[in-house]
């Protein structure tokens, strides 16, 4: 199955990534092969199969409502590219 350029650009935008022209072509081919795999799955007959919500047959895993320690601030911010005091800093965004 082939993917339109618009679809690939749309998906890139949803993922907040910018693609150069040659990247766009390369990614398009890769995505096509992934979608092709999905097509193969589609050909399977699932008439009598219930949709799977979860792959592990385990339900009702709960935790009691008891607080445990949080991270110290050094660890919290350790990998932050930008920080200010106790805050993470990101480019200004106002939706």
């Amino acid at each position: 199955m082939s993917l339109s350029k618009e679809t690939v650009e749309y998906v890139a935008n949803l993922s907040r990534i910018e693609l150069a022209k040659e990247e766009l072509e390369k990614i398009s081919k890769q995505l096509e092969s992934i979608i092709g795999f999905i097509d193969a799955l589609r050909s399977a007959d699932v008439t009598d199969v219930e949709p799977t919500d979860h792959i592990v047959p385990v339900n009702n895993r709960l935790r009691s409502d008891e607080p445990r320690g949080s991270l110290p601030i050094e660890k919290t911010l350790a990998n932050a590219p930008h920080k200010d005091g106790r805050f993470f800093v990101v480019p200004k965004v106002i939706e």
Binding site: D65, P67, R68, S70, L71, I73, R86, F87
Partner: peptide
Amino acid sequence: KTKVFCACPTEFGKEPNSQVC
């Protein structure tokens, strides 16, 4: 007392990023 998917406390008005994991 704790968040919905982790055991961090939920108290109001604490220092920024002090109740995270």
